[in-house]
Amino acid sequence: MLKEDSPTQVNPEEITPIPVTVGISARHVHLTREDVDTLFGPGYELKKFKELSQPDQYACEETVTVVGPKGVIEKVRILGPERKQSQVELSISDCFKLGIKAPLRDSGDLSGSSSVTLVGPVGSVTIKEGAIIAARHIHMHTSDAEKYGLEDRDRIYVRAKGPRGIIFGDVLVRVSDKYKLEMHVDTDEGNAVGLRNGDTVYAYKIHGHISELVK
């Protein structure tokens, strides 16, 4: 690790770029079994539309309308499989349109998050908490984590090159044998930097000074 009092002392392994594919995460909804029943009818089974890049994750054919105090967003895609708590992942721009102040959170960290109403073809449900702006993060398979010397919940830097290049700080690393190596950013972050699905960014293990990254 880089010493805070010695910004010129850099471990070469820390500034060796780790190429990571980008996935742009558009607004979407995860639902509980109970909320599926309310929105689409008792016993309704969500229909798989397409597989997503992460194993066992998929987009559903079904969409819902998300309603806030000042606006609505229609046709928000549901992602499967079902979860223990319903979650709505939005961008800051989406929150402006809805009139809510959703917190920036890691996926699944929903305590005290924002309330929204979801409207389906059969009914509606107001979730007391569950709307968040998902923090940027990297999914990493355990074999990749071992290869690169990283652990679950490490926070690192990621550099996106190009005309609107930027260095993302505080990027959460999420490690599991169920994950595929990929960085997720939302549409606001992706558009600001000019990133598209499938682009490559470069992750760095470095935790201290970042002067070496901008040379």
Rank of each mutant, 00 (worst) to 15 (best):
I156R: 11
Y157C: 00
V158L: 00
R159K: 14
L172Y: 04
G120F: 06
T126H: 12
D154L: 11
R174P: 01
E151C: 08
A160C: 06
H139C: 00
F168G: 02
D177V: 02
I166V: 12
L150T: 03
K180G: 07
V173D: 00
S143W: 06
G120M: 05
I127C: 12
G162P: 10
T117A: 09
F168L: 03
P121Y: 05
G120N: 03
L118T: 00
G130F: 13
G162Q: 07
E129W: 11
H137C: 13
K178N: 07
K128F: 14
S124F: 11
G149L: 09
R174N: 02
L150A: 09
A145W: 08
V175K: 04
A135Q: 15
S176Q: 01
E151R: 14
I166F: 11
T126D: 05
I133H: 07
H139F: 10
R153Q: 15
R153K: 15
K180T: 13
M140S: 09
F168T: 02
H141K: 10
I132L: 03
I156L: 12
L150I: 01
H137V: 08
I138S: 10
D170H: 11
V119I: 01
G130R: 15
G162K: 09
L150V: 01
S124V: 04
K178Y: 11
A131R: 10
I156W: 03
K161Q: 11
V116T: 00
H141V: 01
I167V: 11
A134K: 14
G169I: 01
P121V: 02
M140Y: 14
R164C: 05
A131S: 04
D152G: 06
D152T: 06
M140L: 07
G123M: 09
A134P: 11
K147H: 15
G120K: 05
V175G: 01
S176C: 00
P121M: 00
G149T: 04
I138W: 13
I138A: 10
I132S: 04
Y157P: 00
G130N: 05
G165C: 04
T126Y: 12
R153M: 15
E129I: 10
I138T: 12
R136N: 10
R155P: 07
M140Q: 05
A135S: 15
Y148P: 10
G162T: 06
K128I: 13
E151N: 12
D170F: 10
V116G: 06
R174M: 01
K180W: 02
E146Q: 13
K161M: 08
H141E: 01
Y179E: 10
V125N: 09
I166Y: 09
I133G: 05
S143E: 01
